[in-house]
Design a protein around this nucleic acid. Structure first.
Length: 680
RNA sequence: GGGGCUGUAGCUCAAUCGGUUAGAGCAGCGGACUCAUAAUCCGUUGGUUGUGGGUUCGAGUCCCGCCGGCCCUACCA
């Protein structure tokens, strides 16, 4: 097989946050693929970098009272440490805030200008006069113009779901300074993507570069109509690179981020005395990007258009993966499933996660789910019970001795496994890791069966059969070694421990096809332990704590979790139909009085307007005087089945909240509501 | 509202181009073994492929409707 030159990237993590287990899926998917390619003898390089620019970084640095450079330096250190703990090995890890990146941004910009793709447009945007900066939509909060809900973001309302422009908000406030933003106009630079429409149509639909579902998505979504201009500049102040021919304007972070792939490559080239053009202007180089589905847009439309304009090599393949869910749901800070990479690594072996992710990943865009029961089962039974067990059952019988000088008859098992090697390789190549893993586990099953049938523990007892014992173990350990080579991209630690045990070095995938003979066998040491469910629990607990500490200062309202803890949320959903069964109405209290003989109850007469009234007994005596209630509006359930009580029939229920005793709070409709209105 | 993806055993997933009786692993059940980290091995239960139609000699696979799930979008991407 001829050696390929392969350039691989994973998306650049944003310097505003720590690496969490969701991110890891991508870096692991990529790392496994790169390790696989290297093991196959190809010239493969893995480049990544921190994505450091943008408003969010600028604002955070300001809040923390330090420079952006200090902030991104710290975050970079944290990122690099997290990756290392998970054995994610980059050939170069750069930064988008580098000289290389600035130069490349300028070069590419020049090509884009020369190609006449840039135009200027005035746009209106909210400006924070105190902070002296334009505000992205999510930095503006105010009252929803449609439904009146307070404290909503500038782009849409979570209460009523309507969308609007931040300028439509009632009483808008800057989330930065609390000042009232002004509407200002600014000139922005745009790239006319439409000029590349035909090229993008062809490139995305060729079937060579994208998964089919992604190609369809683009076709149905963007390519069916005129491509919109891409707003590529941001006025000062902005943390990023200033556009040389438009002073006071900076490149939008999504312009320089992907260029960071090239910048990181360049840094590596400089360190290794290699020409950048050999990698980015060379048809012989394969370029592979691994990204998450959330940033499809940038990598499948803008990025190819930019590269083409600049005369750089286009990616051969963009591998797009789904998100990681935990227990079938989005990762949640309150549930403790928003787990930082560092928190994970403090409690659990990163190899577990590498294996688990590999066993779930395919080439499709589907989300993958982490369920800790499944996680434990998979790691325990596959890795400990099956794979490592093979070595564990054989090694001690030949420890201190050697493998047989000649590879013994093994009923064709070694050959079978080496035939499987090409299929497994193909699965890795196509990013079908789950299939690769499944196939490898079949080999582990067969090896265990072999040992079972040969009963080395019986043979051992017979002095005349020691050569046979050595042969059995030679076969067992060679089958183990094959499996470890196949798993090496996923489990590099297991590979290196096996190298020590069997005194050899894994250099190439093809070594799996020839057996190891005559070499010394070391002392077997446990290579992996079972997943400790207590550690999983601790990790989740710690993730909860970390999340609450982190999120507390972020919110302007320091509402504690006590109420929810006292009365946890109902797990089960109700349907809209269920909800509609409950007919809740605004009502006016027209009579209220004590109930003789009752400790907690007040008797209320509610008017729903007109002649419609309800007699209701409410357990609110401890908190309300009857005379204070008369005349006020309440919310009641008007179709509650009438219930006979000791003191009379209750025909409804008044809505109130609170734990009881001295703390009961009636719900109160806002001004304007009148009796009889239904609550929706 | 528009679009994409998806639904196979209790759970996680296979099933080539439409081709025989829809297969694995885990869990469950019954046995064996005791070398191995309560590991392993043998056997076994389990499916009207979400649902209703259609095309076909033949449909898990292709087409249409319905139901459910996930996601993107709804004029900043």
């Amino acid at each position: 097989m001829s050696s390929r030159r392969i350039l691989v990237t994973a998306a650049l993590p944003y310097a505003n946050g720590n690496i969490h287990i969701g991110h890891l899926v991508e870096y692991l998917q990529t790392d496994i693929w790169v390790r696989f390619q290297k093991l196959r003898g190809h010239e493969c390089r893995y480049f990544c970098a921190d994505d450091t620019h943008g408003t969010a970084i600028m604002i955070r640095a300001r809040q923390e009272g330090r420079s952006e450079e200090e902030l991104i330096a710290d975050m970079r250190e944290a990122h690099v440490r997290d990756f290392a703990r998970f054995d994610i090995e980059f050939d170069n890890y750069g930064s988008t805030n580098s000289d290389e990146n600035r130069q490349l941004c300028e070069q590419i910009w020049k090509s884009i200008r020369d190609a006449n793709l840039v135009k200027e447009k005035e746009i209106e945007q909210l400006f924070d006069p105190e902070a002296g900066t334009f505000l992205a939509d999510r930095f503006v909060k105010g009252t929803c113009p449609k439904c009146g809900a307070e404290n909503q973001y500038g782009d849409n309302c979570d209460k009523c779901g309507s969308t609007y422009s931040p300028a439509d908000l009632i009483d808008p406030k800057s989330a930065l300074s609390g000042a009232t933003p002004e509407l200002r106009t600014a000139r922005h630079l745009f790239i006319e993507l439409e000029q590349h429409h035909e090229f993008l149509n062809e490139w995305t639909q060729s079937g060579k570069h994208l998964q089919p579902e992604i190609a369809n998505y683009l076709k149905g979504h963007f390519l069916g109509e005129e491509l919109r201009d891409w707003d590529i500049s941001r006025p000062a102040p902005y943390f990023g690179f200033e556009i040389p021919d438009a002073p006071g304007n900076y490149w939008y972070v999504w312009y320089d981020a992907p260029i960071g792939y090239i910048a990181s490559t360049w840094e590596w080239c400089k360190k290794n005395q290699v020409e950048l053009d050999d990698w980015w202007r060379n048809d012989e180089t394969e370029i592979h990007h691994f990204i998450g589905k959330d940033i499809t847009y940038f990598h499948t439309l803008f990025w190819p258009a930019m590269l083409k304009t600049a005369g750089l090599a286009l990616p051969d393949r963009i591998h797009i993966h789904g998100f990681l869910t935990v227990d079938g749901e989005k990762m949640s800070k309150t549930k403790g499933t928003f787990i930082q990479a560092s928190t994970y690594a403090e409690h659990l072996d990163p190899n577990y996660f590498r294996y688990f992710v590999a066993s779930k990943l395919s080439s499709r865009v589907d989300d993958i789910d982490l369920n800790f029961d499944e996680f434990k089962t998979k790691v325990d039974s596959d890795l400990v019970g099956k794979v490592v067990n093979i070595a564990s059952r054989c090694a001690k019988f030949v420890s201190g001795s050697t493998l047989s000088e000649e590879y013994p008859d093994d009923e064709g098992l070694f050959q079978l496994a080496s035939d499987a090697g090409s299929r497994i390789a193909e699965h890795y190549e196509k990013c079908e890791y789950s299939s690769a893993i499944r196939e490898i586990m079949v080999l582990a099953d067969r090896a265990n069966q072999y040992i079972e049938n040969k009963e080395p523990w019986v043979v051992r007892k017979d002095k005349d059969r020691q050569a046979e014992l050595q042969q059995i173990c030679t076969v067992g350990l060679n089958l183990f070694r094959q499996i470890v080579i196949y798993l090496a991209p996923v489990l590099p630690k297991l590979a290196s421990e096996t190298e020590k045990l069997l005194n050899f070095e894994i250099k190439n995938w093809d070594e799996s096809a020839s057996p190891l003979v005559g070499t010394p066998v070391g002392k077997f040491q446990h290579m992996m332990t079972r997943v400790d469910p207590k550690k999983v629990e601790q990790m989740i607990e710690e993730s909860k704590d970390a999340a609450s500490v982190e999120s507390a200062p972020a919110s302007n309202f320091n509402d504690g979790p006590e109420a929810l803890e006292k009365e946890p949320m109902t797990e089960e959903h109700c349907t809209i139909d269920d909800f509609l069964k409950v007919d809740m109405r605004v009502a006016r209290v027209i009579e209220a009085g004590h109930v003789e003989g009752a400790d907690k109850l007040l008797q209320l007469k509610l008017s729903l307007g007109g002649d419609e009234t309800r007699n209701v007994f409410a357990g609110i005596k401890s908190c309300y005087n009857p005379e204070d209630l008369v005349g006020r509006l309440v919310v009641c359930c008007a179709n509650l089945k009438p219930r006979k009580m000791r003191f009379g029939v209750s025909e409804g229920m008044v809505l109130a909240c609170g734990p009881g005793g001295k703390d009961i709070f009636l719900l109160n409709p806002d001004d304007g509501a009148v009796p009889g209105m239904r609550v929706h």
